[in-house]
């Protein structure tokens, strides 16, 4: 079980959290202007990287709030967690930045 640090509540066991998938996918402001490819990309395509991954978590059995994390998907090690709305932190060796 992972230990996850909620930016508001601190370190808690994984069971208190719900995973929310890839972070920083903004819903297009005006969907009607998108091509079908762009809409499918928004809805379905995911980066799914082997390495650092920015992702959403929600502390459902705690404060209830969404936040983001950068986790290494090979080791499952959490590099950093940060509040929703903040930009993805600069991390050395982060290829997605």
């Amino acid at each position: 079980m992972l230990i996850i640090t909620c930016p508001w509540c601190g370190a808690r066991p994984e069971l208190e959290f719900r995973y929310g998938g890839e972070a920083h996918i903004a819903r297009p402001a005006d969907p009607s202007t998108l091509t079908d490819e762009e809409w499918a990309d928004f809805l379905y395509n995911r980066t799914n990287p082997k390495g650092l991954h920015a992702e959403r978590w929600r502390h459902v059995h705690g404060c209830g709030r969404f936040f983001n994390a950068v986790r290494d998907t090979v080791s499952d090690f959490f590099v950093v967690t940060y509040k929703a709305g903040e930009t993805r932190p600069d991390i050395a060796g982060d290829q997605a930045k």
Binding site: M1, L2, E14
Partner: peptide, 13 residues
């Protein structure tokens, strides 16, 4: 597991 991973191992719970 609930989250994406390439770790090739899952959680005990």
């Amino acid at each position: 597991d609930a989250y994406t991973s390439y770790s090739q191992r899952g959680a005990l719970h």
